[in-house]
């Protein structure tokens, strides 16, 4: 019992002495900094341990290098994966930027066309679907009766130097409108060659060349050249029309005028509108009596 008590006292004394020594050293170290006795002790310990530390460093270097190689490899793999992820993201962003830029350009062209044709009451919209039926091609717009679109309203699309005719509205719901495009054989738009008196005819899809138009029933007597611009002829004249006059349709690319005995000639017209890549369009609200 006494022995155990002595041991307890001794342990407590040892711990107390060590705590006191620590506090004394701490105080001295705090006062002296790295000079005096404390600095000498530190220098001595460093000198004593330096060779061992050097040996330990050399012995463990291969393992440390192996560790660094392994962690570096993992890091490199992670970086590669991250790089691939970033590349994909950049690709998606780039694609989105292109798409947005295209939409912005289209919207700007729309706005420009609307501004220049302020006498029309218009509503702008986007093509949300294209009919896969090649016999009766049409496009679906994301605007409809709720936006003021009505049956037979003409539809134009902005092109580089203004707007050009796309077709007419052939069906309307509250939120969508189906547009019969110029490539539909049933459309029949009355047109004229700009600057040529009496060069009137009807625009229909070209039967031999997909994507091209034919201007039929043009009198043989008028002079039409390649490069002439074909526009809608409007309401006046013997051929009535749903479309106001002067809306560009396309450019003359071929004139067939050497068939003797025929009353009219045929003209091949390349449309200004690219029907494969229609984005934004403008609907002219003609049924409201705003036409020019």
């Amino acid at each position: 019992m006494l022995l155990q008590k002595n041991r307890v006292i001794r342990r407590r004394a040892v711990v107390g002495l060590l705590v006191a020594a620590s506090l004394t050293l701490l105080t001295m170290s705090y006062r002296e900094g790295s000079t005096g006795v404390v600095g000498s002790v530190q220098d001595g310990v460093v000198e004593l341990t330096a060779p061992f530390a050097s040996v330990a460093h050399r012995v463990t270097s291969p393992f440390v290098d192996g560790w660094h190689w392994t962690t570096g490899l993992i890091h490199a793999r992670n970086q590669t994966a991250e790089l691939h992820r970033l590349q994909n993201r950049v690709g998606r962003d780039e694609s989105m930027i292109k798409e947005l830029t295209q939409e912005l350009r289209t919207a700007q062209q729309n706005a420009h066309w609307v501004q220049e044709n302020a006498h029309f009451k218009t509503v702008s919209g986007s093509v949300i679907a294209t009919s896969p039926d090649t016999d009766t091609p049409s496009v679906l717009l994301g605007i409809g009766g709720d936006d003021g679109v009505e049956l037979n309203d003409p539809v134009v699309a902005p092109v580089s130097d203004g707007g050009a005719l796309v077709g007419r509205v052939k069906a309307v719901t509250g939120s969508t409108a189906t547009v019969q495009v110029l490539l539909d054989p049933a459309i029949g738009v009355t047109a004229t060659v700009q600057g040529e008196q009496g060069a009137n005819g009807t625009i229909v899809p070209s039967t031999g060349t997909p994507g091209e138009l034919t201007m039929a029933e043009v009198p043989q007597s008028v002079l039409v050249k390649n490069g002439d611009t074909v526009v809608t002829s409007g309401y006046t004249g013997k051929l009535g029309s749903l479309y106001p006059d002067g809306i560009p349709i396309g450019r003359v690319t071929y004139v067939q005028n050497n068939d003797l005995g025929q009353q009219s000639k045929q003209i091949q017209v390349t449309p200004f509108v690219n029907f494969d890549n229609l984005g934004g369009v403008v609907v002219l609200e003609m049924s409201h009596g705003q036409g020019g």
Binding site: V15, L18, V19, A21, S22, L23, T24, L25, L26, T27, M28, S29, Y30, S34, V38, V41, Q42, G44, V45, V46, T49, A53
Partner: peptide, 16 residues
């Protein structure tokens, strides 16, 4: 503490 040039006794107190 000596090798790392810290205040002597600081780490000793923590270990104690």
């Amino acid at each position: 503490d000596a090798v790392l040039y810290r205040h002597l006794g600081m780490t000793s107190l923590a270990y104690l």
